[in-house]
């Protein structure tokens, strides 16, 4: 009788993701999981806690801190590390810190390159990781729709979209040479709706920035950004006004657009998401830099 049942789509997705996470732990000697503190990372962390129960996580979490993240993200991150007892590695690009890189001053392209892409490369080189687990989903962006779940990277962390390894059934090729690595995306087949529904069902903690609240916001490069600290240029800060807003993605506060919203519960957020016609990444300024921006960034080594 039991066998006649089919698992619901979320249970099937969950099982697939757990299979992928265990495959990483079994096949690689030095894996790491990227932790961005956002909702996708939260789901991934939750899945990993399930995959290895009753043990603790067999790999550390890595957060690339651009130092421009929302303050709440950092508090939330440290609290989760304490509650769940995972190893947390935080890395910021020391050269970038020295140069005082600021998205306001240097623009999103330079900031992202130095504080994110370069910082990530530094952290990966320093850690010598052979597998890097990331929370990217195939529905997020067109170039991601074609990426493998186990995505090969050469010694320079580069992705070659035209020369990917065929990936069949649930049999993943994990063979690499020293210095090479694999990016692994356990929630590739989840959509934004799946992620939210899963957070709702499993009661997964997420930062409160996802929920609508009255915040100080300013208009900046066509989007609304939140005044999170006084590094925002004073002229800009002066224009701040209070509005009910929330965030659909979380990143560097000067580069993360807020949306006007009254959604204070998960069902309300999901409802808002279903009704909105713009895609999730629209709130992220970095994708607008150039046509095919994400594909280019991925080839260079950005997640």
């Amino acid at each position: 009788m039991l066998n006649q049942e089919r698992l619901t789509h979320l249970k099937q997705l969950e099982a697939e993701s757990i299979h992928i996470l265990r495959e990483v732990a079994a096949e690689f000697s030095n894996p790491v999981m990227m932790y961005s503190v956002g909702k996708d990372s939260s789901v991934m962390l939750h899945l990993a806690m399930k995959a290895f129960a009753p043990s603790k996580l067999p790999f550390p979490l890595l957060h690339v801190d651009t130092t421009w993240k929302f303050k709440e993200m950092i508090d939330f991150r440290d609290q989760r590390a304490k509650d769940l007892g995972f190893d947390l590695i935080v890395h910021s690009n020391p050269e970038g810190l020295e140069m005082n890189i600021s998205p306001f001053e240097h623009g999103s392209k330079v900031h992202t390159d130095i504080m994110k892409t370069q910082a990530l490369k530094q952290a990966l080189n320093a850690g010598g990781y052979d597998a890097v687990i990331g929370g990217a989903r195939r529905d997020e962006e067109k170039s991601r729709a074609k990426e493998r779940i186990f995505s090969f990277r050469d010694k320079h962390h580069r992705w070659d979209p035209k020369n990917q390894r065929p990936e069949l059934w649930n049999v993943y090729n994990t063979a690499i040479e020293k210095g090479e690595s694999v990016r692994v995306f356990p929630i590739s087949n989840w959509t934004e709706l799946d992620v939210w529904q899963y957070i709702y069902l499993e009661e997964i903690p997420i930062p409160s920035l996802y929920f609508a609240k009255e915040q100080e916001v300013v208009e900046y490069e066509g989007t609304k950004i939140m005044v999170d600290d006084d590094r925002m240029p004073e002229a800009l800060r002066k224009t701040a006004k209070k509005e009910m807003v929330r965030f659909r993605t979380l990143g560097c506060y000067p580069l993360t657009g807020a949306i006007n919203s009254t959604a204070t519960t998960l069902p309300e957020i999901i409802k808002e998401m279903l009704l909105s016609t713009s895609s999730e990444r629209e709130g992220r300024l970095i994708d607008k830099d150039q046509e095919g921006a994400m594909e280019q960034k991925k080839i260079e080594g950005y997640f």
Binding site: T8, H9, L10, Q197, L201, E268, I270
Partner: peptide
Amino acid sequence: IIDYLKQHENKD
């Protein structure tokens, strides 16, 4: 939305 979410919980 609550009914909607219930229905989608049990999707195949």
